[in-house]
């Protein structure tokens, strides 16, 4: 092993401050003498400084509380306390808007997530997560639909037609994937496709609302 290779191996511990004193002296001497390794060490030092400076908190891109809240209903804490049943008027109003017939059907299905057995050998977390994510998407979709309905009349007729046509295609896809999931049980590939359709719907509604 050449000197530089050996230093390269020690550099990690050196920069982490976990190198033995003897090795540390060796590294320091080499860095003074070898510009290549010194540059390497400098790049690494900057990388580590940047990494430590990364923000410790990043706001989730959407509000995840509703999905969590929906799961707390089924998954009580060990020490059982009061039950809080909260009516969300905004969502109820939104749900009353039947934008596309299929959407309503999907919403009804979502209110009753299909019973699921955990995937054999897989993590049991799949089923509750599936229900929670589905509930979360459904809630987000309903909210956006409500704002979309308010904008609908102001859109040019051609745009309305484009949006409605695409929404209908997405709703059919969502209904198909959901039906398949209900029949087949947990299935990561199907879930991935279902979330993709939901995202497509959220995205389309979001864009249509901003037009």
């Amino acid at each position: 092993m050449s000197d530089c290779e050996r230093i390269g191996v020690l550099l990690d511990d050196y920069l982490s401050g976990t190198l033995r004193a003897g090795d540390r002296t060796e590294v320091e001497r080499h860095l003074e003498a070898c510009p290549t390794c010194a540059r390497e060490a400098e790049t690494l030092r900057r990388l580590l400084a940047d990494a430590r400076a990364l923000p410790r908190s990043i706001a989730p891109p959407r509000d995840l509380w509703r999905g969590i809240d929906a799961r707390l209903e089924e998954e009580r804490p060990a020490r059982s306390g009061r039950r809080f049943i909260r009516v969300r008027p905004r969502l109820l109003a939104a749900a009353a808007v039947v934008l596309v017939a299929v959407t309503a059907a999907v919403a009804v299905q979502l209110a009753r997530p299909p019973a699921q057995a955990p995937l054999a050998g897989g993590p049991a977390v799949t089923a509750p997560r599936y229900a929670a994510v589905a509930a979360d998407y459904a809630a987000a979709v309903r909210e956006l639909e409500a704002s979309f309905v308010q904008r609908y009349d102001r859109l040019p007729p051609e745009t309305r037609a484009v949006v409605s046509r695409n929404l209908a295609v997405i709703d059919t896809a969502i209904a198909e994937a959901r039906a398949a999931l209900a029949a087949a049980g947990p299935n990561p590939d199907l879930e991935t496709l279902l979330w993709a359709s939901y995202r497509a719907k959220l995205d389309l509604l979001g864009r249509a609302t901003k037009l």
């Binding site: 990364l54 923000p55 410790r56 908190s57 990043i58 706001a59 989730p60 891109p61 959407r62 995840l64 509380w65 999905g67 969590i68 799961r71 707390l72 998954e75 977390v125 509750p128 997560r129 929670a132 994510v133 979360d136 979330w195």
Partner: peptide, 27 residues
């Protein structure tokens, strides 16, 4: 939420997963 999400996001390397994990963590 922000702290948990940031951690999940970096550990998972994927925003969709990070959202799911954040929810799992709080549940």
């Amino acid at each position: 939420a922000g702290r948990v999400y940031a951690l999940c996001l970096r550990l998972a390397g994927d925003t969709t997963r990070a959202e799911e994990y954040t929810q799992d963590v709080f549940v």
